[in-house]
């Protein structure tokens, strides 16, 4: 499992709301803590990284979180400018102005262009070996495949031009399991589980990228073993209720009900967990993260997730 952090580029994806950013920031924090020079990149800039690391807005050029960790946000216009400058030796001074606007359009309209500008920038950093590890807080499940498959799609679409040759090395890095991996984050709820199963299949069919792990987030604790549960249920009997009422302050009902709900919740979710396990390729590592009852925010939350990941990976 340690090998996950030994790759160069990790895309962390998942359905919205499952804790994709928490896992990405946790992984980046863990890696940097282990001495790896790490970059974390937010693909859909919503300010999630700035919130998590309690820092200023994360620009395209990156911002230092600590001496081993930088955070950046993707910006396709900047990526294009950088690309033109570095790859094509086209001098671009200042804003590209209307041309950039035109590209902004082409990149929304044309298949793969926006994706290639996103993935291309990250792959470029991998090729240059700027970092030991790049963690990507990637697009959610619906868009990640088109991002990962962008170089292939572009290779087929663009018949000529320098872009075509650029796609070759990109495909090589993406397809190398020692360099690139995808981590899918899910919770044990119906829709996230279904999407995860679908996504793992799509990644296999439509991309050449290795699926490194599935992170199962917010796993509720199992409250009781079988005999404990029987003893628990006996607490609802009249005599036992009386014993409790007479010896504690207040009525035990709410507390008992709460425990019942916790048991039901866990049971309901374990059905989905089972479905997930049944449908996942047995070779894909599964990482379980416990439900965090303490609602932490910002850096505290990042550290707690990093710790939980560390406990699970080791």
């Amino acid at each position: 499992m340690d090998s996950i952090l030994d790759t160069k580029l990790l895309f962390v994806t998942g359905k919205g709301g499952v804790g994709k950013t928490s896992v990405a920031t946790g992984l980046a924090f863990l890696a940097s803590g282990a001495g790896k020079k790490t970059l974390i990149c937010e693909v859909d800039p919503k300010g999630d990284l700035a919130r998590s690391f309690e820092c200023a807005a994360t620009p395209y050029g990156g911002i230092e979180i600590n001496n081993k960790l930088r955070a950046m946000s993707m910006d396709t216009e900047s990526s294009l400018r950088e690309y033109l400058r570095l790859q094509l030796k086209v001098p671009v001074i200042g804003r590209i102005g209307p041309v950039a606007k035109a590209f902004e359009f082409v990149s929304t309209a044309a298949p793969g262009v926006r994706e290639i500008l996103t993935v291309g920038k990250l792959l470029y950093e991998v090729r240059n070996n700027t970092y030991d590890l790049i963690v990507v807080d990637a697009s959610p499940t619906g868009h990640i495949v088109s991002q990962l498959a962008a170089p292939q799609a572009l290779r087929e679409l663009v018949k000529l031009g320098p872009v075509k040759s650029q796609t070759e090395w990109m495909i090589d890095i993406l397809g190398d399991p020692n360099k690139t991996g995808v981590i899918v984050v899910t919770t044990t709820e119906e829709m996230p589980v279904n999407e995860t199963i679908e996504l793992t299949k799509k990644i296999k069919q439509n991309t050449n990228v290795n699926l490194s792990a599935v992170v199962i987030n917010q796993v509720l604790p199992e409250l009781f073993s079988d005999d404990e549960e029987a003893a628990f249920l006996s607490l609802f009997e009249k005599d036992n209720q009386e014993v409790l009422s007479q010896n504690i302050s207040g009525s035990p009902n709410a507390v008992l009900e709460a425990a019942q709900l916790a048991v039901t919740l866990r049971r309901l979710r374990s059905e989905y967990l089972e479905k997930l396990r049944d449908n996942l390729d047995k070779n894909i590592p599964q990482i379980y993260l416990p439900y965090m009852f303490n609602k932490l925010t910002g850096l505290k939350s990042v550290k707690a997730t990093a710790q939980a990941l560390f406990d699970e990976i080791n």
Binding site: A102, F103, A110, K164
Partner: peptide, 22 residues
């Protein structure tokens, strides 16, 4: 004149055929 730089860059980046398709 206004669209010329766009085409120069687009041509180099995307290739002419692709632009024609679009």
């Amino acid at each position: 004149i206004a669209s010329k730089p766009f085409y120069q860059i687009a041509d180099r980046v995307l290739g002419n055929q692709f632009l024609q398709d679009i």
